[in-house]
């Protein structure tokens, strides 16, 4: 082959190299892998963010429960009621919160609501001693 002076100045190989393509055969594989690695990184970041967000939400909900207990102890029944109602939106099956809300209800004079709530608890957990005892007390005070 004549290696004299090529008529073409810049050759295809150099031009490809300038575009980051060293070997045209394997370049598409490299490009795809690079893209997938990037996608994995983005997915991992998103997963991490969502996990943090989730534990923050859980903490907030847990804080709600503790704040409600605190308000109950301070006999702020209205505040306790609001907080427990909010908490139960997140965890509608949480029987501890239901029992505490029943306390707030009965202290605020909502006798029927308190009874209904405690009945819901015993329907869910027939062996829940606290709920049964509180129900008995409520029924005595009619």
């Amino acid at each position: 082959m004549d290696e004299d002076k090529p008529a073409v100045g810049t050759r295809l190989g150099e031009l490809l190299l300038q575009k980051g393509i060293e070997n045209a055969e394997i370049a598409p594989y490299e490009a795809r892998i690079k893209y997938l690695v990037q996608e994995i990184r983005i997915s991992e970041q998103e997963k991490e963010f969502l996990e943090q967000e989730l534990s923050r939400q859980r903490e907030l909900v847990q804080n709600l429960f503790e704040r409600a207990v605190w308000e109950l102890k301070k006999e702020n029944y209205i505040d306790a009621m609001g907080i427990l109602q909010a908490f139960l939106l997140h965890e509608p099956e949480n029987t501890k919160a239901m029992i505490n809300l029943a306390v707030a209800y009965s202290e605020l004079g909502y006798h029927d609501r308190a009874v209904k709530l405690l009945q819901d608890v015993t329907a869910q957990e027939p062996d829940n001693g606290i709920a049964k005892r509180n129900l008995a007390i409520l029924n005595e005070t009619i």
Partner: peptide
């Protein structure tokens, strides 16, 4: 000669879209 640059660019574009 001038079209070689365009060819290289097309190849890069194809690899990007396929990736």
């Amino acid at each position: 000669f001038l079209n070689l640059e365009g060819l290289a660019e097309m190849i890069r574009l194809i690899y990007t879209v396929s990736a």
